[in-house]
Design a protein around this nucleic acid. Structure first.
Length: 449
RNA sequence: GUGAUUGUAGCUCAGUUGGUUAGAGCGCCGGAUUGUGGUUCCGGAGGUCGGGGGUUCAAAUCCCCUCAGUCACCCCA
């Protein structure tokens, strides 16, 4: 046996897929409840759409799709001779696999600008591909569940996204911590210490706080060439426990005041709404993605050790990259794969298994066709059901019934046939009794409702 | 891209300082029970020990190469 799967990809069996769908369906249900409409984009995009959007590392992690036809012929001889893969790529591949859902959405928004009306609320649940090395909770093919609203500045959407996170995780039965911060505060921090051009690297450093602790962040910042005074100010910021402390810090930074005000407005929108999970302001929350400019959100499980299982934020200009009209917005993403892993770990998916069907057993070919009639009657009533395909040994059929998780079996054998009856057995309790053959469908219907 | 670790039956894993015919549990198939599963008892099938090379009288075991998985770092969901 020499079959296998490409690295970082998985098959999903029936049981697993029932569970996965339960999660996706729940997320989708709330996306739609909140007024988001679905779109889908192709698995492949033009490489020119993708390249340069995710940084140098991102470019490395893009799956490139080899051109069709005599692709080597079109590569200039000198590039071929140089064996420089980076240079040769653009001659070998003009398409690549989708790396996330955000950039394709930006491309979509620009291309279909005349067909969408603002504010445009879309959600998208599709697989994406990344060529990085797989490890726990990381795959080369995985699903993302994104919802974004573009073309509206209102902070109601920040509040809406918090509520969306809160409700979805509550319905899934996961207890989570939702954390909120605002990039404007980080921006103000960099202004305050006169290191605004290092905003991006300081953000990245702060983002590692959870993992490496303050000493680790300190080391990174030192390597970035920041002075002790600057680092002290950053530490003071990171240690702030209340919004007021931050507000005091940024009295002279307009952007800081704005960030504070935005966070307060989000809280105002949420005032009086009952959240089922904890929402905390966390000045240390940074998030790696560079395009966020306002609110940032992150969700972590309070019950399991795992990275973030949801995140999002506000961006100013998603479409700038494609030269379209400036469209800002707010978006969030659910980390469905990780949510699955945590829920499996906490046994929250056991109940999400397929609802057990009804299985009909016949013990003789003579009335097998009659069993098929009953089967169609059950299905017409919307009962998931099946008929064992032959009059095999009772034991074998029973085993099969067990394996497919049948809740009820209907047995049609010589004795029953003679008396115009059918035996109904509850596979969970083991109880069994005979009913009139004409009433059987109604009785099953009653039981499975 | 960097580092670690593991590859033995369908699955999870034992296998001593190299030493006859490589084992267990679970699963599978059959029987006890020709009309009753999930419990029990009995029997059976199933292995290029990841692949290649080397050392040795002898290699699952030691050495080299290679492939694959897993985990961590970078980055990320």
């Amino acid at each position: 046996m020499n079959v296998g799967l490409p690295k970082g990809t998985r098959d999903f069996g029936p049981e697993e897929l029932f569970k996965r769908r339960y999660i996706f369906n729940t997320i989708q249900k709330y996306f739609e409840l909140y007024g988001y409409s679905p779109i889908e984009t192709p698995s492949m995009e033009n490489l020119s759409t993708l390249l340069g959007k995710y940084g140098d590392e991102g470019d490395q992690l893009l799956f490139k799709v080899l051109n069709n036809g005599d692709y080597l012929k079109k590569v200039p001889g000198d590039i071929l001779a140089d064996k420089d893969s980076t240079k040769a790529t653009k001659h070998l591949a003009k398409r690549g696999l989708r790396y996330d859902l955000t950039i394709p959405f930006a491309r979509y928004a620009v291309m279909h600008r005349n067909d969408i009306n603002l504010p445009f609320k879309r959600y998208q649940i599709q697989p994406v591909w990344r060529a990085d090395r797989p490890q726990k909770g990381r795959y080369q093919e995985f699903f993302q569940c994104d919802a974004d609203v573009i073309g509206a500045d209102s902070l109601q959407y920040e509040a809406e996204c918090v509520l969306l996170f809160d409700q979805v995780f509550a319905e899934l039965g996961l207890r989570v911590d939702i954390r909120i911060n605002n990039r404007k505060l980080l921006s103000a921090l960099c202004q305050k210490i006169n290191a605004f051009d290092q905003l991006s690297s300081i953000t990245t450093a702060i983002d590692k706080l959870d993992k490496v602790g303050f000493e680790g962040v300190q080391n990174i910042l030192e390597k970035e060439g920041l002075s002790h005074d600057q680092i002290n100010t950053i530490e003071q910021y990171l240690n702030a426990e209340h919004l007021q402390e931050i507000a005091d810090m940024f009295q002279h930074e307009e952007e800081g005041q704005q960030g504070i005000s935005e966070i307060n407005q989000v809280y105002t929108f949420l005032d009086g709404k009952t959240l089922q999970n904890k929402l905390t302001f966390d000045p240390t929350l940074a998030r790696g993605l560079s395009y966020y400019t306002g609110a940032i959100l992150e969700v972590r499980s309070s019950e399991a050790e795992m990275g973030s299982i949801g995140g999002g934020g506000r961006y100013d200009n998603l479409t700038a990259l494609f030269g379209g009209e400036k469209l800002g917005g707010m978006g969030i993403s659910f980390g469905a794969e990780r949510i699955y892993d945590i829920m499996e770990e906490l046994h929250l998916l056991d109940k999400a298994q397929m609802e057990a069907p009804v299985l009909i057993l016949t013990l003789d070919e003579k009335y097998h066709a009659y069993g098929f009639d009953i089967l169609q009657q059950l299905r017409a009533k919307g009962i998931r059901s099946d008929l064992y395909p032959s009059g095999a040994k009772m034991k074998k059929q029973m085993k099969y019934a067990n394996r497919i998780n049948a809740r009820y079996i209907m047995i049609l054998g010589p004795e029953e046939w003679e008396n115009k009856e059918i035996a109904i057995k509850n596979m969970i309790t083991g109880k069994q009794y005979n009913v009139n053959i004409d009433d059987a469908v109604d009785i099953i219907l009653e039981k499975t409702e």
